[in-house]
């Protein structure tokens, strides 16, 4: 369970998150929608521990631990995963090598045995197939020369292998065609269990047709201004965010 309480965060002098409160019980999927610049990506970065964000108030407790005090890699080990809005390129670093290094780092921290190359490749190939990606995907350098859609799918590949307890998807659907969107949704739905929860940040209702959320929140101007069930997303699709920011 993730409990965010009255979270305030700033970048330099600008306060971006102005008291976010949000609880995601295990097994639930919550969506966050909201206008550009509302602070959605900022929330995802603060939760995963990126430098440059100062938390001035509040806390974020995941499975009893205050994750805001942890290093990014410790949060990953605790089960947190962020699918980046803009995945980062790592020139010269092979995708398979990166995935295996990450997977083994997390396995080590959980006290599990590391996977050898053969066992890893078996898992990785299966995941690649599931996501309808080309075989050579694993041989290419991490995100280098990937199309926008390929980058997003690569995030999903990482998620499939790292099997997080809590996934934050930051606009993973942006730039995807409908087939790719379904594949991403299947990837998330495949992880659904009592022990898995997700925070899905999106602009579009259409993703939520495929990943049906338990709760939809609207983030505007650094605060959650409305929460509701899946119907809220449909309502927003029709009326937009006008009027919500002042709320």
């Amino acid at each position: 369970m993730l409990e965010i309480k009255n979270l305030h965060a700033r970048i330099g002098d600008a306060e971006i998150l102005k008291g976010v409160t949000l609880t995601i019980p295990d097994g639930e999927i919550h969506a966050i929608m909201g206008p550009n610049g509302a602070g959605k990506s900022t929330l995802s970065y603060v939760l995963s521990g990126r430098d440059g964000y100062e938390v001035t108030e509040g806390e974020a407790i995941y499975n009893g631990q205050n994750i805001l005090e942890m290093e990014p890699e410790e949060r990953a080990a605790a089960g947190l995963f962020l699918a980046f809005q803009y995945p980062v390129e790592l020139p010269g670093v092979g995708n398979a090598n990166f995935l295996r290094t990450a997977l083994n780092a997390i396995r080590r921290s959980r006290g599990e045995e590391e996977l050898d190359a053969v066992a890893f490749l078996k898992q990785a190939r299966a995941a690649v197939k599931q996501l309808a990606m080309k075989e050579d995907f694993l041989k290419r350098n991490v995100n280098v020369g990937f199309s926008g859609g390929e980058k997003k799918r690569n995030e999903m590949l990482q998620m499939a292998l790292l099997k997080p307890g809590l996934a934050i998807l930051d606009e993973t659907d942006s730039g995807l065609d409908i087939d790719a969107l379904k594949i991403v949704a299947e990837g998330v739905n495949a992880l659904r269990s009592e022990k898995f929860s997700a925070l899905v940040i999106t602009h579009y209702q259409r993703l939520l047709d495929h990943i049906v959320p338990d709760v939809v929140h609207v983030l505007a101007n650094g605060k959650i201004v409305r929460s509701g069930n899946a119907d809220l997303a449909k309502e927003l699709e029709a009326s937009g965010y006008v009027g919500l920011e002042a709320a």
Partner: peptide, 16 residues
Amino acid sequence: EDQLFYCRSRGLSEED
């Protein structure tokens, strides 16, 4: 910085 953070968010230590 974004490369380092990307790797660390996947569980790698800063040194790794």
